[in-house]
Every structure is written in C-alpha cells, then in structure tokens.
Amino acid sequence: MQQLAGGQFFGETTKTLLLNGLTVTDTVYTHDKVDWHYHEHAYFTFILQGCVKEINKTETLTCTPGSLLFHNWQEPHYNLKAPVYTRGFHIEIEDRWMKQFLENTTLEGNRCISDPSVKLLFHKMFCESAMSDKESAIGIESLLLQAFSHLYLTSNNTGAHKPKWVNVIREILHDGYNDNISLTTLAGETGIHPAHLCRDFSKYFGCNISAYIRMLKVQRSFALLPLKKYSLANISYECGFADQSHFIKCFKMYTGLRPLAYRKLLH
C-alpha cells in the first residue's frame, strides 16, 4: 500500500504553503480512481468543488462542496471521483505541531465532520491561503486552533451521557430544516420543554439555534456557488433564505466575504 509524503496528493496541486508544522495544499483531483493508500501526516480535507467518494474500512462517504473530512496518518482509504471538475483544500498536521499547540485531541481514524461552525472555520482558512500574504500563516494557525478547540469542547459534551434529543435535533436540522421550523416543532419532536431546549442547545452545538440554522444554510450554498449557472437569487431560494439580501448578509457574517467575492476566489 502506498504512503503519500507530506504535501503529496493524487492530482494537480496548484498551491502549497509550508507553515510551522503545517502543509497547506490546494489540489485538483485528476484520477477517476485512487487505490488504497495512507498519508505521512494527519490531515483535513475540505471539498471546494465537484464530488468524490472516499471509502475506508468502515464506510463510504460521498463528499460534495463543503464536506470536511479528517484522516489520521495511519488510516488507509481509497477514492472514486465523479466525472466533474473536483478540487480539495488540505491541511496536513505534523506531530510536532500537535505537541506544540494541542493539549488534547480526540480526533482519531477517518472522520466526517458535520459541525457547520467548524466547516466555516475551514472555509476561512481557504480564504486566508488564497491571500498568500505575510498574515496568512498566523491566520490559518489561529483558525485551526479554533477548530480543534470547538471539536474538543463539543466532543466532551457528546459522550455516553449525551441526551437522546441532541441527535434527534441534529438530524432534523441537517436533513429537513426549512423556513418553517419552529421552537414548538423542535420541542415536540424531542419531547422536551422549549425552555430546556433553548438553555442546553448551545452546550451541545456551540451556539444558539438560530445561528446554527443560518450556518447550515450558508454551508449549503458552498455546493452551488461554484456553479455559475446559479444566480445569487437562485441560491438564496435553494438554501432557504428569505431573499438575496438576507443570503448575502448571512454569508458575509459567517465567512467574511460576499458570495460573489467567494465565487471569484474559486475561479
């Protein structure tokens, strides 16, 4: 089985940034199939465009724009790419960086990360890398530490004693959220009092309910913004925003960019 060295991916890497124990790469995937392999370092993959399937020992993951994966260095996997332009943003993490900056990390194996707060942090890391100025390094490092901190804090609240309603709420919001979702509906689906739901939601999700829903909507737009056939009005409607103005406002709030600026950055 092939081991890939730091900064090496199957495809055409268009940009590489070597930071203090981090390797940041932007890669266009050119192989329809990549056989079983593993990487020298642990790393995150944030899909920017296209579609790729990742198959590991336990599951098959279909990754579209906005998908975020973590791979530990020793974990084997293989990939199947859809016949479309597909591009990924990677941050590889050397062991020395982990030891220097992290006291604790619960990330092991291959893991798909669904938390929109963390995904938006990786979106910001991509934007920082595109700037390629002297502030990019500290920007990426600080955002990565924020991501690890958020993952660590939420993982501490999602162990064996996690209430059953947490997964129910997550499934509702990720799979069926819309403009008509209400506190009464969520409370009814979980069988808990609305006040209790509001009080404990941020403990398990890292923010309040309205912010979480907005982040999910912004996250959904990542899959559509690379496609020029979709206007901002189309995207606003598809992602459940009240109108284009509301979409632009929320997108900038959570990413730091206007949607058209991000589309320009991609192309």
Rank of each mutant, 00 (worst) to 15 (best):
L121W: 03
F122Q: 06
F122Y: 07
M125W: 13
M125V: 10
M125K: 08
C127G: 06
E128N: 09
S129K: 10
S129C: 14
A130D: 08
A130F: 06
M131E: 11
S132M: 15
S132K: 15
S132Q: 15
D133R: 06
A137F: 07
G139N: 08
E141K: 03
L144F: 11
L144A: 12
L144S: 09
Q146F: 11
F148V: 06
F148Q: 14
S149A: 07
S149E: 05
H150N: 09
H150W: 06
L151N: 13
L151W: 07
L153K: 08
L153T: 09
S155W: 01
N157L: 05
G159C: 14
A160H: 08
H161I: 08
K162Y: 02
P163D: 11
P163V: 12
P163W: 05
W165E: 03
V166W: 07
N167A: 12
V168R: 13
E171P: 00
I172V: 03
I172P: 00
I172G: 00
L173D: 12
H174T: 09
D175H: 10
D175G: 10
G176C: 04
Y177I: 04
D179I: 10
D179N: 11
D179S: 10
N180P: 03
N180G: 08
I181H: 01
I181F: 00
I181T: 02
I181L: 03
L183K: 02
T184I: 07
L186D: 02
L186A: 00
L186R: 02
A187F: 02
A187G: 01
E189C: 15
G191A: 14
I192W: 12
I192M: 13
I192K: 11
I192R: 13
H193N: 14
H193G: 10
P194R: 15
A195R: 02
A195H: 01
H196Y: 05
L197F: 08
L197Q: 04
L197V: 08
C198M: 11
R199Y: 09
D200Y: 14
D200E: 15
D200T: 11
F201K: 09
F201N: 06
F201Q: 01
K203M: 03
K203C: 01
Y204K: 08
Y204V: 13
Y204H: 14
F205M: 11
G206A: 08
C207M: 11
N208I: 03
N208Y: 04
I209P: 13
I209M: 14
S210T: 13
S210N: 10
S210D: 14
S210L: 10
A211R: 08
A211Y: 02
M215C: 01
K217N: 05
K217Y: 02
